[in-house]
């Protein structure tokens, strides 16, 4: 995973002081992405750090690591961090070793939030990857009365969060043919939510550009609400 090392940002030793929570970004293998390798690192590390600033302010009892924290699925220490975040999974192409590690991680109790991928082509790629990863578990639409929408903030509506470019300039909120945002999930046999899929929306950009005066506050507001709810849900269910 050369790309992982290339993109890795580690301003502070994350393990000098053990924390309860690390916002861990999955550094996966993938197809070429717009000429760059490493679609996992889109918006990294600023989105992660900026989300942590907001998260720690809103969940002031959470003992969280302040910075970004990326790990490949094959890292033997991955199990210590039961919360994972991924973006641009339309370009994800997991190796068999990654697939095995990630499957074990999810079935053992890990929680994976997927964000920022658009349209039917990218969906098809994720669906194919998930069918190899968790073939026995279907992807289902999460209804708005699911506790993940109410465990901290009450989210009454699924918004489509545009990328920074379109958000700043008031353009359309969608990309490609991803006109309608969805929040979908995968449950295990006991009804435990293992994977949350935010499709046709870009929460990461809303965190990353939340301080931008041109980026609409309602999108970043919503993105933080969703992000906080994901963390609260992950640490309580």
């Amino acid at each position: 995973m050369r790309t992982f090392e290339r993109y890795l940002s580690r301003p502070v030793d994350p393990y000098e002081v053990q924390r309860e929570f690390y916002f861990t970004r999955l550094a996966y293998s993938g197809h070429m992405y717009r000429g760059f390798a490493g679609s996992w690192s889109i918006d990294y590390p600023k989105a992660d750090r900026q989300f942590m600033i907001g998260l720690k302010r809103l969940l002031d009892q959470l003992d969280a690591y302040d910075y970004d924290h990326a790990l490949p699925a094959t890292d033997p220490e991955l199990y210590r961090f039961p919360f994972l975040y991924s973006v641009e999974v339309g370009y994800m192409a997991l190796s068999p070793a990654e697939r095995e590690a990630l499957r074990r991680y999810l079935l053992a109790g890990g929680f994976w939030v997927i964000d920022d991928f658009w349209g039917s082509w990218e969906w098809a790629n994720l669906e194919r990857e998930l069918s190899l990863l968790l073939p026995e578990y279907p992807i289902v639409e999460l209804p708005l009365d699911h506790p993940i929408f109410h465990c901290f903030y009450d989210v009454e509506e699924i918004l489509q969060v545009p990328n920074v470019g379109q958000g700043r300039y008031g353009g359309p909120t969608w990309e490609q043919d991803g006109f309608t945002p969805h929040v979908r999930g995968i449950f295990d046999e006991q009804g435990r939510l293992m994977v949350v899929i935010n499709w046709n929306t870009d929460l990461g950009d809303a965190w990353e550009w939340a301080e931008d005066e041109w980026y609409p506050v309602r999108f970043s507001h919503y993105a933080y609400q969703m992000g906080v709810n994901f963390v609260v849900y992950a640490m309580s269910h």
Binding site: E20, F21, L58, L59, D60, Q61, L62, D63, P82, G109, F152, Q190, R192, V231, V232, A234, M235, S236, H237
Partner: peptide
């Protein structure tokens, strides 16, 4: 405080029909 220990503890007994764990977790002040 939000902790993985409490989450996994509750999960460990969630399938036990004889135990009903009601929890209250402080998320913020």
């Amino acid at each position: 405080e939000p902790r993985d220990e409490s989450k996994f503890l509750r999960r460990a007994v969630s399938q036990d029909e004889n135990l009903h764990v009601v929890s209250m977790t402080r998320q913020a002040a």
